[in-house]
Design a protein around this nucleic acid. Structure first.
Lengths: 134, 134, 134, 134
DNA sequence: GTGGTCTAGACCACA
DNA sequence: GTGGTCTAGACCACT
């Protein structure tokens, strides 16, 4: 994979049935992929229209996601040219930091497991299977 | 803990800032605690008014949660006496079934871990610490 | 003026002909009025629909402004009840701090005056007239 | 400074982050400097390519600014030789007229100062410091 | 070509 | 009643 390449449209995996809004799914997915190093600083994002037609959603929905990512500092808008992945957030890639981003979801799992009175070993086993399957 | 006791208001742990609606947090938490056996059939639920003032939320929100739990068959309304935990759902607590209830949250963790390019061992280790701390 | 009152719709003065987008005009105006102490913490904002029909703009435009102000921490959304002015930004009211918010506009005036080779006294005199007229 | 000199690239001070488009910043800045007498009729403008590389902007952006200035009559295109500052607009520099060009920016400052509830004396003092520093 | 803004109108979730 | 989301489609500005 070369740097500064154009990203394919299928960087987004949208679930339209979810209660989580589409634009928010896009924001969270892109954030994780940038921080995870799967998307590099300087990469050109696919255009709003391309993503919209590729996913079958309204361009405004995509635009909203891009705008939020821009105000977050993860994307940079180049007027008339499109958006690219920002530089300054790419150094935030140490595995330890990324693991911390997963903590809220794990805390949620912890609370639910406690309320369900589940054994630690059973929960860890199920998660191991899911992780190794992916 | 004895059976048919009065339940305290703090069976609910509400996060008002969350995007998950309050009534839904209450429904899911109570469901898990009933299925996990931490709340028993016949236990008396605290009144709508007590829960509302205790948590600082709108009484209509609590009422909506109770209504959903009632139409789910988890609570039973006793006219003029308040609500109690229903009988028929308490037997549904085989560990295997309860574990399945946790699967959606674990699947979500799996997707996020993949996008963050995290190592399986690191994720499992963090979850183990959370589970053993609780 | 009492605290926690409902704000009238005419807190916004929109210029539709301007190149500055409507939602941005609203954001900046409200920010200044909050920091200037003309709008108090806890005040209820007029509803999206009321503002929209009052100004003759689309509700989504108003909603966009409100959303930006919320992510800025100046407004707080209360689900199903509307938005109120946040608490924490009201202490930032010292005159000195507010004056700093005006600096960018004054710097712009300074650059333009320099390029037009205008005399300091003339510029100050014109600004004085404008300020005393308001 | 002698007449009919070559102008350096740094007659333009561009802010790429601004919401004001680059070509518009260039147009307004050059207009003010011509009317203010800092740029004289007959002076040679730097080439599109020099300005573009000097400022790090797209050559088409510089070209658009030059074209607008030409259709405004402020610049004259000399085939194969580049552009020079036109004659006819240089006489338009009575101080009173130039001051009027600053009025819109001052009106804007007035509105913002009012919304920030600032004292006239404080605003004038800050502007004085900026003007005397320049 | 790019993204930004706005409209009109629909539907949903929350209190 | 409140705000949020999404669509379809138009128009604009920048490069």
């Amino acid at each position: 994979m070369t740097k500064n390449a154009d990203l394919s449209v299928d960087i987004f995996q949208i679930t339209t049935g979810s209660s989580e809004p589409i634009y928010r799914q896009m924001v969270e997915q892109l954030r994780r992929q940038i921080l995870g190093g799967q998307i590099h600083a300087g990469d050109a994002m696919p255009s709003v229209r391309d993503v919209a037609s590729g996913l079958g959603v309204n361009p405004m929905t995509v635009s909203k996601a891009y705008s939020l990512l821009e105000s977050d500092g993860l994307l940079v808008r180049r007027r008339g040219l499109g958006m690219i992945v920002a530089q300054r957030h790419t150094q935030f890639n140490e595995a330890e930091s990324r693991l911390e981003l997963l903590r809220p979801s794990l805390e949620r799992v912890g609370l639910e497991a406690q309320q369900l009175k589940l054994a630690t070993a059973d929960v860890l086993q199920m998660l191991r299977e899911i992780l190794e399957r992916a």
